[in-house]
């Protein structure tokens, strides 16, 4: 097995994990429209320290495609929200991780990623759908996003610290 193919397989595995977690998230009932847990961000958080920048962007694209498939929004305007939010959060998380990795754990990175994704989606829905009413949606949307981001960041940190699979992957890459 060559190096290249190992890396490709890792991206594919993390992408598949995004698809699976999107499915799990889809099954969890939401009390309000717009509420998300962001479970599918977990593989992206884990991938930050394993993959290169282009590889992370591929992973984000896989995540967006997976969510679109699972939610059935792949060919609707809602897909645009998802894609823009994921791209923004992916870029911010990459930037913070690469530039300020010493000062941030995955918890902080996850919070900033969720914040940027949610702000972009709020901005889009303000421009495209709901106009000024978005200000009513914003506070609970952002608060829930922050809370779940903290939990996801903690889970990702614990996973990276204790997973034997990660040790194996790091050795092979």
């Amino acid at each position: 097995m060559t190096r290249v193919s190992d890396r490709t397989r890792l991206i594919a595995l993390l992408g598949a994990l995004c698809l699976f977690l999107s499915t799990v998230e889809f099954m969890i009932p939401k009390p309000l429209p717009f509420m998300r847990l962001g479970l599918a961000n977990l593989p992206v958080l884990v991938g930050l320290s394993l993959l290169t920048v282009p590889e992370i962007l591929i992973l984000v694209a896989l995540k967006v495609a997976g969510q679109g498939l699972v939610n059935g929004t792949l060919f609707s305007y809602i897909f645009l929200f998802s894609a823009a939010g994921s791209l923004a959060s992916g870029l911010v998380m990459l930037l913070v991780h690469r530039a300020g990795g010493r000062y941030f754990s995955l918890v902080g990175i996850s919070i900033l990623g969720a914040l940027s994704s949610n702000l972009v989606q709020l901005l889009l829905s303000r421009l495209m759908v709901f106009g000024d009413n978005v200000r009513l949606i914003a506070p609970p949307f952002l608060a829930v996003g922050t809370a779940t981001a903290v939990v996801l960041g903690l889970v990702a940190e614990r996973f990276l610290a204790s997973s034997e699979w990660i040790v194996l992957v790091r050795k092979e890459l």
């Binding site: 913070v96 300020g100 010493r102 000062y103 941030f104 754990s105 918890v107 902080g108 990175i109 919070i111 900033l112 969720a114 914040l115 702000l119 506070p139 952002l142 608060a143 922050t146 981001a149 903290v150 960041g153 903690l154 940190e157 614990r158």
Partner: peptide, 18 residues
């Protein structure tokens, strides 16, 4: 130990926006 200084800054920023 998980939390680093930047995490608190990130959390504070998010709560401020909320």
């Amino acid at each position: 130990k998980i939390f680093r200084p930047g995490d608190w800054v990130a959390l504070a920023a998010a709560l401020l926006v909320v």
